[in-house]
Every structure is written in structure tokens, then in C-alpha cells.
Simulated scan of single mutants.
Amino acid sequence: MRFPDLTDRRYEILRTLAHLEADVEGSVLGRDLSAALRISRQALAQQLPLLERAGYLEYRRQPRQQGTLRLTAKARAALGQGVYPVLGEIAAGEPTLADGSVQGYAERLADLLPLRDGDFLLRVRGESMTGVGIYPGDYVAVRPGTDILEGEIAVVLIPGEDGATLKRWYLDGNRVLLVSENPAFAPMSFARSEVRLQGVMVGHVGGGRPRRSRQSVWLEL
């Protein structure tokens, strides 16, 4: 994705700054950036305010000290560094126009999912939850604990299995009913004492289409 307000020179500045950030694991001094680019500080100073106003740089000015530079999420998106633009919204009900305008940038998984400290990911194996778009090879985000509502999707240890299963959770008296989202899989019923609730699904990342299962998976549906 080419950003139209970035000239070749500005792309070069951002790429060089990205390399320097990786080397020092933090913000970069302006003099170090100009030296790496082999241009004068004056020439660099002409470009920095433009990049800052356009949202590509954070320029932290300090009294009587060299200012420091840091790339923004927008800059990393322009460089293709694992940051993805959020291009508006898409309707799941009545049709609306998706105009492709950039509304923000997703730099981390937590930018997209409501993750907290302690949450973890599991890779999916099996097809029992394809009815809600969860396919083999997808990832589910799980919040550990036993706080769950009827019908939520849970990670549950069941008897006779080496791993856990991902199913909708229902209580029926002293029994737990684990229900798939695929009619080919029958509901499973266990005594409450036979199962162990490990957590609740709070998010899902995947292509939204059937795929072949992969090896080294950690969750059996």
C-alpha cells in the first residue's frame, strides 16, 4: 500500500529510522539519523516537521538537548512492518458504502481484541465450531477462569481426553452440556465434577473459511 504523501526521500527517512530504532531499541537522536542518511541536519530538519504533521513521526523536543525521534503506527504501516490500516467499516446488515478511508492502525493483537494480562491464545484443530466461523488453524483468545455465562464458548477439559475442547457451555442441573456449532457433532453431557472449565473465549483470529488442519496444534474441538 503506497502512501501518496510520502516521497522517495521521506520513505528513505522512515526506513532508516526504523533500522536505527531496531539497533538502539528505542528513540533515535536527530543527529544519528542525519548521519545514517548522510545528509546535513539542516536538510533533515526540513523534512521532519512535514513527517510529524502527517502523523509518521513522534518528535520529542527537550530543552538544551537533542530531540528524539520515533516512528508511529502509521509509519510502520507505510513500511509494511506488521501494522495494518483499518479502512472504515463493513456492514453485516443493511448495505453501506466502504470508502476505504483510513480510520486507524492496528499494530498489536490487543488493538483488535479485548485482551487483558493473563489471556492466552490457542490454535484450533477440528471442525465442530465452524458454524460461528472458527476453522482449523484459526486462533482463539482465551481468558482463564471459571466466570462464564450460559451459552458462552468455553475451553473445557473433559474426561478421557489428553487436551481441552472448545464448545458452548450450558448447565443442566448437576450436569454440563457442551454444544458444538456444527450439526455433525452431537452435544456432550458430563457430570459437573467430571469437567474442568479452563477459560472463556474472548476473541478469534482467522481467515473465516475452511482450511486444512496443521500439525503442532494445541486445541481439539
Rank of each mutant, 00 (worst) to 15 (best):
R2I: 07
F3I: 05
F3N: 03
F3M: 10
P4G: 05
D5A: 01
T7V: 07
T7Q: 13
R9H: 09
R9G: 04
Y11S: 06
E12L: 13
E12K: 13
T16I: 06
T16V: 07
T16K: 14
L20M: 09
E21G: 10
A22R: 11
V24W: 04
G26K: 14
G26E: 11
L29I: 00
L29T: 01
G30Y: 03
S34C: 13
S34V: 05
A35T: 14
A35R: 15
A36M: 06
L37N: 07
I39M: 15
S40V: 09
S40N: 13
A43W: 12
L44E: 12
A45K: 13
Q46C: 05
Q47C: 06
L48I: 13
L48Y: 07
L50F: 09
L50A: 14
L50H: 07
E52P: 00
R53A: 13
L57K: 01
R60L: 09
R61L: 08
G67K: 04
T68W: 14
L69H: 08
R70K: 14
L71V: 08
T72M: 02
T72Q: 01
A77S: 14
A77K: 01
G82H: 12
V83M: 02
Y84N: 00
E89T: 12
P95T: 08
T96E: 14
L97S: 13
L97K: 09
L97N: 11
L97W: 10
A98M: 10
A98I: 06
D99F: 07
S101H: 11
S101M: 08
Q103N: 06
Q103H: 13
Y105F: 15
Y105S: 01
A106D: 01
E107R: 02
E107L: 04
A110K: 08
D111M: 04
L112G: 02
L112C: 05
L113N: 04
L113A: 04
L113M: 10
L115H: 10
L115C: 01
L115E: 10
R116P: 00
G118C: 03
L121S: 07
R125E: 13
R125A: 12
E127N: 09
S128V: 05
G131S: 06
V132S: 11
I134C: 06
I134T: 02
P136R: 09
G137T: 10
Y139L: 15
V142N: 03
P144N: 08
P144E: 07
P144K: 12
G145P: 08
T146Q: 13
G151P: 09
G151F: 12
I153F: 01
I153K: 00
V156Y: 02
I158N: 11
G160S: 15
G160K: 15
A164V: 07
T165H: 06
T165Y: 09
L166I: 08
K167D: 04
R168Y: 13
L171E: 15
L171H: 08
G173L: 05
N174S: 12
R175E: 15
L177Q: 11
L178R: 05
V179E: 15
V179Y: 06
S180D: 05
S180Q: 02
E181C: 04
P183K: 10
A184W: 02
A184C: 02
F185H: 14
P187K: 09
S189P: 01
R192G: 11
E194S: 15
V195I: 09
V195D: 03
Q198W: 07
G203H: 03
G208W: 09
R209H: 08
R209P: 00
P210G: 03
R211V: 02
R212W: 01
R212N: 05
S216L: 14
S216N: 15
W218E: 15
E220P: 00
L221V: 14
